[in-house]
Amino acid sequence: MVHTGTQDDSFQLYDLRIEVVCPPGKRIMCGAKEGDYFTLQGEMIYLPPNQGISIYSLATVIPLLPAKQRVTSPNDWMTTDALIACPDPNCPSQLKIIREGIRTFSHSETTVVPLHH
Protein backbone atom coordinates (compact mmCIF):
# COMPACT_ATOMS: atom_id res chain seq x y z
CA MET A 1 0.00 0.00 0.00
CA VAL A 2 1.35 3.40 -0.95
CA HIS A 3 0.62 6.35 1.33
CA THR A 4 -1.87 8.50 -0.56
CA GLY A 5 -2.52 11.15 2.06
CA THR A 6 -6.09 9.92 2.61
CA GLN A 7 -5.14 7.40 5.28
CA ASP A 8 -3.73 8.74 8.52
CA ASP A 9 -0.63 6.66 9.17
CA SER A 10 0.76 8.90 11.90
CA PHE A 11 2.07 7.86 15.29
CA GLN A 12 3.70 9.75 18.13
CA LEU A 13 6.85 9.28 20.15
CA TYR A 14 8.23 11.24 23.07
CA ASP A 15 11.49 13.08 22.64
CA LEU A 16 13.74 11.95 25.48
CA ARG A 17 16.48 13.67 27.44
CA ILE A 18 18.83 11.26 29.21
CA GLU A 19 20.70 13.07 31.97
CA VAL A 20 23.51 12.04 34.30
CA VAL A 21 22.77 12.12 38.04
CA CYS A 22 25.78 11.91 40.38
CA PRO A 23 25.56 11.80 44.18
CA PRO A 24 27.51 14.78 45.62
CA GLY A 25 30.97 13.93 46.88
CA LYS A 26 31.03 10.40 45.44
CA ARG A 27 33.76 9.12 43.12
CA ILE A 28 32.38 8.60 39.61
CA MET A 29 34.12 5.81 37.69
CA CYS A 30 32.48 6.09 34.24
CA GLY A 31 33.73 9.56 33.33
CA ALA A 32 30.27 11.13 33.58
CA LYS A 33 29.64 14.53 35.11
CA GLU A 34 26.46 15.76 36.81
CA GLY A 35 24.20 17.29 34.18
CA ASP A 36 25.82 15.59 31.16
CA TYR A 37 23.07 14.51 28.80
CA PHE A 38 22.05 13.36 25.38
CA THR A 39 18.71 13.55 23.61
CA LEU A 40 16.76 11.09 21.52
CA GLN A 41 14.42 12.31 18.78
CA GLY A 42 12.83 9.45 16.88
CA GLU A 43 15.73 7.12 16.18
CA MET A 44 18.44 9.79 16.35
CA ILE A 45 20.70 10.34 19.38
CA TYR A 46 22.21 13.81 19.83
CA LEU A 47 25.11 14.71 22.13
CA PRO A 48 26.09 18.29 22.93
CA PRO A 49 29.42 19.44 21.41
CA ASN A 50 32.53 18.19 23.26
CA GLN A 51 30.57 15.83 25.49
CA GLY A 52 30.78 12.05 25.43
CA ILE A 53 29.13 9.15 27.17
CA SER A 54 30.53 5.81 28.28
CA ILE A 55 29.63 3.02 25.87
CA TYR A 56 28.85 0.84 28.89
CA SER A 57 26.39 3.38 30.31
CA LEU A 58 24.88 3.81 26.86
CA ALA A 59 24.52 0.04 26.46
CA THR A 60 22.63 -0.11 29.76
CA VAL A 61 20.04 2.52 28.87
CA ILE A 62 19.48 1.89 25.14
CA PRO A 63 17.16 -1.16 25.53
CA LEU A 64 14.71 0.95 27.57
CA LEU A 65 14.54 3.99 25.27
CA PRO A 66 12.09 2.71 22.62
CA ALA A 67 9.60 1.80 25.37
CA LYS A 68 10.09 5.17 27.13
CA GLN A 69 9.39 6.94 23.81
CA ARG A 70 5.92 5.44 23.62
CA VAL A 71 2.78 6.47 25.47
CA THR A 72 2.22 4.03 28.33
CA SER A 73 -0.46 3.52 30.93
CA PRO A 74 -0.12 5.80 33.99
CA ASN A 75 0.00 2.58 36.09
CA ASP A 76 2.84 1.01 34.07
CA TRP A 77 6.26 1.02 35.78
CA MET A 78 7.71 2.19 32.46
CA THR A 79 5.80 5.45 32.98
CA THR A 80 7.06 6.12 36.51
CA ASP A 81 10.54 4.59 36.77
CA ALA A 82 13.22 6.79 35.24
CA LEU A 83 16.60 6.14 36.94
CA ILE A 84 19.02 3.61 35.46
CA ALA A 85 22.13 2.57 37.44
CA CYS A 86 25.61 2.80 35.97
CA PRO A 87 26.65 -0.75 34.98
CA ASP A 88 29.88 -0.43 37.01
CA PRO A 89 28.98 -1.75 40.49
CA ASN A 90 31.59 0.65 41.96
CA CYS A 91 30.10 3.74 40.31
CA PRO A 92 27.13 5.48 42.00
CA SER A 93 26.07 7.52 38.95
CA GLN A 94 22.68 7.05 37.29
CA LEU A 95 21.05 8.03 34.03
CA LYS A 96 17.65 9.70 34.31
CA ILE A 97 15.26 9.31 31.37
CA ILE A 98 13.07 12.40 30.99
CA ARG A 99 10.11 12.49 28.59
CA GLU A 100 9.91 15.80 26.78
CA GLY A 101 7.72 16.94 23.88
CA ILE A 102 5.88 14.58 21.57
CA ARG A 103 6.86 14.32 17.92
CA THR A 104 4.60 12.93 15.16
CA PHE A 105 5.93 10.47 12.59
CA SER A 106 4.46 8.83 9.50
CA HIS A 107 4.47 5.06 9.13
CA SER A 108 5.09 5.33 5.37
CA GLU A 109 8.11 7.58 5.96
CA THR A 110 9.72 5.26 8.53
CA THR A 111 9.30 1.83 6.91
CA VAL A 112 8.58 0.15 3.58
CA VAL A 113 6.35 -2.44 5.32
CA PRO A 114 2.72 -1.58 4.49
CA LEU A 115 -0.02 -1.05 7.02
CA HIS A 116 -2.66 -3.80 7.04
CA HIS A 117 -6.11 -2.82 8.23
Rank of each mutant, 00 (worst) to 15 (best):
A82G: 13
E100M: 03
K96Q: 05
V71D: 12
Q94H: 07
Q69C: 02
S73Y: 08
A85D: 10
P89F: 10
I97W: 04
V71H: 10
D88N: 00
D81H: 15
D76E: 08
P74R: 08
C91D: 06
A82Y: 14
A67Y: 09
I97A: 05
I84R: 01
S73P: 00
D76M: 01
A85N: 10
P74M: 01
I98Y: 00
P87I: 11
Q94I: 08
G101M: 12
L83G: 04
I102V: 15
T80K: 02
P92N: 01
T72C: 14
N90S: 15
I102C: 14
T80Q: 03
S93H: 06
P74L: 08
T79W: 01
P74N: 05
S73C: 09
N90Y: 15
S73D: 04
N75Y: 14
D81Y: 15
L95P: 02
L83S: 09
D88V: 04
A67C: 12
A82I: 13
G101L: 11
E100N: 00
P89C: 08
N90I: 14
A82P: 09
N75H: 13
R103L: 14
K68L: 09
L83M: 13
S73Q: 02
D88Y: 00
P92S: 03
M78I: 13
K68I: 00
